[in-house]
Nucleic acid binder design. Structure first.
Lengths: 198, 198
DNA sequence: TGAATAACAGATATTGAAATCTGTCAGCGA
DNA sequence: TCGCTGACAGATTTCAATATCTGTTATTCA
């Protein structure tokens, strides 16, 4: 495995994900990562000051892979209600797809995320800000009527918890899930849209 | 401790909660419970067929203590929006109070509940039905406008997850919690109420 | 010079033998 | 008769000795 490539943080992170996938979270050690890279484990410590920081970096990468595509929806030019609908569904789908495709790896990332609560808070803030942009957009367009967009963005994020927070992933096999998501999104949309015909 | 009282399931459950509180979930054994009751552990097995069923009964008791007081709010004669507001806040307060008063015991009950998923499903169904009654009430009174009360009741329950589901209890110390709850309830109320003046 | 290493101390994980627990049942005593 | 007991087998947990890992540093090599 002695690649004639320089040792970069990025390469270490990739191999670390591999090692986590093969050995599982509990058994994956820094020594394993070093072995997979064909270097001594001391070399890994040259790029990451501790095992915890290595794990945190892996978690951060994963969270960024989830939130990046959502940014595109915010940028789009659709009406705000459509954006809100699509953004929420994209968030749910991103998480649920990862869970259904590889539950073990998902559990691994869940535990990593629990440890890396700083990165998770950043992730949450980032997502809430995206939501707020959509809401402000809708207010400007006259389709939404919202007193406090920041508070409402947080409220929507909180309300959506069950369908994107990994703690509830064991319910994502429920055949009624799509119906529940539809009902929630309808309820939330009605909560922010301007009054329809009485 | 040799009480001259007959051994009833109720008495066993009470003492079991005591033992759980003193020894912790991991260390509490059926032998401990029997010792506290001053009987042989065989006697406990006369009333509960297994340790798991004993634990499940403890979980069920706890869940019932949470949901019972909420029933009174449903029965009340206030306007539906007030009921809905009070019911949600009562649910959140019930869980959060238990968590803040004794986090260790709360964690114990959380684990018990995870095991007793049958009881938990009953609990959820019971709560959702209470919600549905409030919603139907509001529709009849003309304050709510809801296409499908059953689906909406579930959606509200799902939306409230973050503030009553024990998996999120570690966030209940957040000083912003009351504000977040206010924002969520306002959003949900707007989602079910008939249109106000445009 | 600067990246990588190998050897090390203290912390953590593994392992297998011994202790304890769960669930059962034949028999005791009211 | 009926509830309780105490002894038991198999499963689970504990504990301490052993092995492995984490993080550091003096040294090597290009």
């Amino acid at each position: 495995m002695n690649e004639n490539v320089v040792l970069t943080p990025e390469r270490i992170l990739e191999v670390t994900e591999d090692v986590l996938r093969r050995y599982g979270l509990a058994k994956a050690t820094v020594v394993d990562v070093a072995r997979a890279l064909d270097v001594s484990h001391g070399s890994v410590y040259r790029h990451f000051p501790s095992k915890a920081s290595l794990r945190e970096a892996v978690a951060k990468r994963w969270l960024e892979r989830v939130s990046a595509p959502l940014g595109n929806i915010v940028e789009g030019s659709e009406p705000a209600p459509v954006k809100l609908d699509r953004w929420l569904r994209a968030l749910f789908t991103a998480k649920q797809k990862r869970y259904l495709e590889d539950p073990e790896m998902f559990a691994t990332y869940l535990t990593l995320a629990r440890e890396a609560c700083k990165s998770v808070n950043g992730h949450k803030t980032c997502l809430t800000e995206q939501l707020e942009l959509i809401l402000a957009d809708g207010v400007k367009q006259g389709t939404f009527e919202i007193a406090d967009t920041k508070a409402t963005a947080k409220a929507i994020f909180d309300a959506a918890t069950r369908f994107h927070h990994p703690a509830h992933s064991d319910e994502w096999n429920d055949p009624q899930l799509p119906a529940r998501i539809d009902a929630l999104i309808a309820l939330l949309l009605r909560g922010v849209e301007v009054c329809r015909k009485s």
